[in-house]
Design a protein around this nucleic acid. Structure first.
Lengths: 224, 224
DNA sequence: GTCTATAGACTGATAGAC
DNA sequence: GTCTATCAGTCTATAGAC
């Protein structure tokens, strides 16, 4: 606010339009019109359309990561003497921050996560950027989950985390959809319901049966 | 092939480019250049870019749905006297056909599913089209899964199916990613491994603990 | 059915005045 | 920092010859 908030206004409009229409379908003219600033301001402040996209992304990703790591710090300090954090606490620290940030007032967070959800379903260069940015999260959470689930082979854990990230990103990409398809029975606007459902889902998925290719199905049925 | 395969060539190229770059980033010029046909042929055969997109989609969706329903017919005919199909059979019928089609030779299927995966992370009109097209699948599979899991409340089932579709679509959208991030430990090119992993994941997720908002966490820890 | 040519509009980016 | 004006290229779609 000292001289001008042009930069922030551009970021806000870009966040909204990138979230709603995607990167390619959003023109800089649409962004600057929505922000009520001059077209040339984008290139002055961000260099290019890609630069703007990156800036939109970087504004939110650090606070999100920090909150996740903070919750892990708390969980770790309360862990037993062996240092193993209970699975549910880890999952709360992973899923809780984004879902709560998304549902609490500020629409910007929800739009940012929508962009993340879109990126997750994109192959190519965007995915590489995503991985880099969430690398510290992976480094902290994967070993903790592995420690909480010692019976899982490394490959099983990677498959399951990949699937769980997909579940989460689907919720990010279009939070309203589940409310619509369920006729209001499921309420994604309530962050605690979303978190509880996703954590329970993840707990079951991670602790469930272990995949065995070419398994003798008949024999397995008997065991159950 | 009687007179010309122009239409098919356009569909093939469009499928590839829509899958790789998305709808908005794919120009009709790129499509017709790749297909080695004239630009105007697209409008002649498909009316518009949207018409082409729809045609790409409709070419594959029916065979996929038929195979899923066929596997359900088989499972149903082998079900016990109460008519309840075992959960694993239902999940095999749901996840097996797309993953096997995707991995068996024909790259077209894999590209088609990549488009489906992209659409799943898009809000707006595309999602509405998706639901319509997979409506008969939903109508057949959801009640069967509900019957196999009588302890689940309707809302729980919807949440979980929503999450599972997200897991599946992440695999569709970028099948190679898990192979890359796992350094080859997970092989998504092997359809039986993918199916086994996704089915095991889904089984655990569907049969896992039931979410309760505002639960007494301390008391729950004791039970475990 | 296939082609050329083009209409009419939109795109990201930039030069240069203020 | 903000503005106007514009470049050079792209886009979808179509009219009309063959």
């Amino acid at each position: 606010m000292p001289a001008s908030d042009t930069k922030e206004r551009i970021l806000d409009s870009a966040e909204e339009l990138f979230a709603e229409h995607g990167y390619d379908a959003t023109s800089l003219r649409a962004v600057t019109a929505a922000a009520e600033v001059n077209l040339a301001a984008v290139n002055y402040h961000f260099g290019s359309k890609q630069g703007l996209y990156r800036a939109v992304f970087e504004r939110r990703v650090d606070p999100l990561n920090r909150e996740r790591l903070r919750m892990m710090d708390v969980a770790e300090s309360e862990a037993g003497p062996e240092g193993v954090i209970p699975l549910r606490r880890i999952l709360e620290a992973f899923f809780g921050p984004p879902l709560r940030m998304s549902a609490r007032g500020d629409d910007g967070w929800s739009r940012f996560l929508q962009i993340v959800g879109r990126m997750n379903s994109t192959s190519g260069e965007h995915v590489h950027a995503l991985r880099q940015v969430f690398h510290q999260i992976e480094e902290r959470f994967f070993p903790a989950i592995a420690a909480a689930l010692p019976h899982l082979r490394p490959a099983d854990l990677i498959w399951r985390m990949h699937f769980l990230i997909g579940s989460m990103c689907t919720l990010f990409a279009d939070p309203k959809r589940i409310t619509i398809v369920s006729d209001g029975l499921c309420d994604s606007e309530d962050p605690e319901e979303s978190v509880a459902q996703l954590v329970a889902f993840a707990e079951g998925a991670l602790q469930g049966p272990i995949a065995e290719a070419e398994v003798d199905v008949a024999a397995e049925e008997e065991v159950r």
